[in-house]
Amino acid sequence: MDTKIKIKSTNLNVFYGEKQALFDINLDINQNEVTALIGPSGCGKSTFIRCINRMNDVIDICKIQGEIEMDGKNIYAPNTDVVSLREKVGMVFQKPNPFPKSIYDNVCYGPKIHGIAETKDDLDQIVENSLKKAALWNEVKDRLQEPGTSLSGGQQQRLCIARAISVNPEVILMDEPCSALDPIATAKIEELIDELKTTFTIIIVTHSMSQAVRVSQKTGFFHLGKLIEVGTTEKIFKNPTNNMTQDYITGRFG
C-alpha cells in the first residue's frame, strides 16, 4: 500500500512547569494505518498524543516547543483554530467517559455543535452510521434513549468511539482504550480498530505488547520522554535495534 504521512512531529519538546516531559520527538504517522505507542508508565506516550489534538492546552503549566504538522500544516501555528482541529482529530480516553445523557444524545452531540446535520433525519442517520461503525448498533438500537452510562464498560467504550467518529474525523487518538476492559470487550475493540483504519488514521497508546502486535502496523517505543525507537511493528517486535526496546518488549523492565 502506498503510504502517505498524515502527521509529522518535528523536535517536539513538552514541559510541565519546570519538568520536561518530552524530548525532541520526531515521529511520522502514516495515513490509514494504526500506529501503536508503547513504553513504561510516565514515559510521555499520553502526553504525545494529547499534543496532537492540543488537549494539553487546558493544562495551564504545559508549554510546547517544536512543531506538529498535519497534512503539512503546523497545528501549533497561531492561526490554528483548536475547535476545528479537534473536529478532525477525535480522541478516545482510557476510562470510558460517556456524557450522562442518552445514548442518542452522546453520539449526536458532536454533529449538532458542528452543524454537520441539517435535519433530524440526517442526525438520525449519522447516529445510526456511527453506532454501526463502532459495532454497537445491534446492541443498542432499541434503547437509544437510555442513558449511556447504563451500558457495560466495553459498550461504553464503543459508544465513546462512536461519539468520536460521529463528526467524521481524519485521525482518532486512543489513549489505552482497553485498559479498563475485560478480554472479550478488548477483542471487540481491537477488531473494530482494524476495520476503522480503512477510513481513519489511528494512533493508539497501549500497555499490552500483544495488543500492539495485533492491531498496529507501526510501533514507537517511548522511554523517559524520549522516542527510543520507531519502525514497523514487525521489525520492532522481531528485530529491535535498541537494547532497551528489546528489554522492554521481552518484559525485562517496565
Partner: peptide, 20 residues
C-alpha cells in the same frame, strides 16, 4: 473526564461548560 470528552469532540470551552 466530562470536560475532556466534550473538548475532544470539538466543543469550545464555553460549549463544554454550558452544555455539560
Amino acid at each position: 473526564s466530562i470536560r475532556e470528552a466534550a473538548l475532544a469532540v470539538g466543543a469550545s470551552k464555553v460549549q463544554s461548560v454550558i452544555h455539560h
